[in-house]
Amino acid sequence: MPSSMPATSTRKTAATVPEAAARFSTGDAVRVANGAVFGHVRTPQYVRGKIGTVERICGRFRAPEELSRGKYDGAQRALYRVRFLQVEVWPDYHGDPSDTLDVEIYEHWLEPVRTKR
């Protein structure tokens, strides 16, 4: 495939980075931004505004919002797996209170939560 086809290079260049390069660390409490965003995003609606805990840092990847608009040379963003308690995501959740939902969320969607639960 010719190198002029940028879509092929985006995922291949993603590399794991040391945790120091990321804003949040494993175990940090984070809140998902709750803004209305047009176009393609990879942050599910059901976790917008919810608080979770960083389960791991996945590496650095280009932002899906930019990729979907044809911008393939944007900055790479840290990607996290954020763990939410199901009872916090769904107020009427039926199941064990320890049940969790892990979701991959990019750093620019996350804000710090000062008081850890």
């Binding site: 590496g59 199901q86 064990d96 049940d99 969320i105």
Partner: peptide
């Protein structure tokens, strides 16, 4: 008593 963990493949993993 088993914890259910759901993993949503929303991005690159």
């Amino acid at each position: 008593g088993t914890t259910i963990r759901v993993h949503d493949s929303t991005a690159d993993m």
